[in-house]
Amino acid sequence: MSFILITGLLLGGTYALIAMGLNLQYGVARIMNLANGEMLVAGGFAAFWVYTAGQVSPIAALVVVAPLAFAVNWLIYRLMLQPLVKRAKSRGALEVDSILATFGLSFVLVGIMTWMFGGGYFNYSYLAQRVDILGASYGQNRVVAFSIASLMALALWLWLSYTRAGLRMRAVAVNPNSARLVGIDVPAVSALAFGLGGAVTASGGALISMFFTLDASVGVMFTMKALIIVIMGGVGDIRGTIVAALILGIAETFVARVIDPGLTLAAAYVLFLGVLLFRPQGLFGSKPT
């Protein structure tokens, strides 16, 4: 039992980081980015590539992956999504447009990655030794990935809570119109949030690639999970996101171990259903009025 709990927590920690990326993009920039999972896979591929080509540790690769992902996502927002925000007549119209556009982007990215790396599976062996925790042994790579993900999530949370830039971002998340009135450059902050979200997700991908076999088309699975976590935790709610991610990690591990490894998505769906039925405003959200 404690094995399931700890394995689940280790997995959930990495999920939390990925979902925080998506939550930044949806909460601040108001774009439901359905290409989020592809950013993750791209981050994982980059880590794979530098490790196999140059024996560079995937952790060191973060130094390159994160800024690169930031730049790419920032450009995507400025070039592709901002025009949609501008032309949208209503929140609903923007929603449909951004869903379609980011789906398109996701397929294009899968297409490009398949073309570059082929359709096969990718994994590499890094820190594969075991480490003992509470009488059971776990892959070192999982523990390291969890620790780095936690550190990054903590840093992000501190940054959002205690810096001026973080404050601006939270202001836009709460209400873009009021934020504009107090002199915040909403498009700039949105682009920043979108870039940052992408960087966080891609970093999560690099970490996950240390213990998870990726292929070019697996991104959509991660998008689903991240979306479920964001909805479960509540849009814009970092604490909720972390708790939801841990719950999902544990639930998935439990179902995979006890019932059937083929039912992990079903486990996520049971949680999703519960949230939609009983707490559509998120775990900690108050009822909408």
């Binding site: 929603e95 449909v96 869903i99 689903m224 059937d260 079903a266 999703f272 939609l276």
Partner: peptide, 27 residues
């Protein structure tokens, strides 16, 4: 379950539905 809520929830739910049914049928 989903049509009372906004469009995003619906898209996400239906996106995973085929995979969910597939997993259950396979199981």
């Amino acid at each position: 379950v989903t049509l009372r809520l906004s469009g995003v929830y619906f898209v996400i739910f239906t996106l995973g539905l085929a995979e969910l049914v597939r997993q259950v049928v396979t199981w």
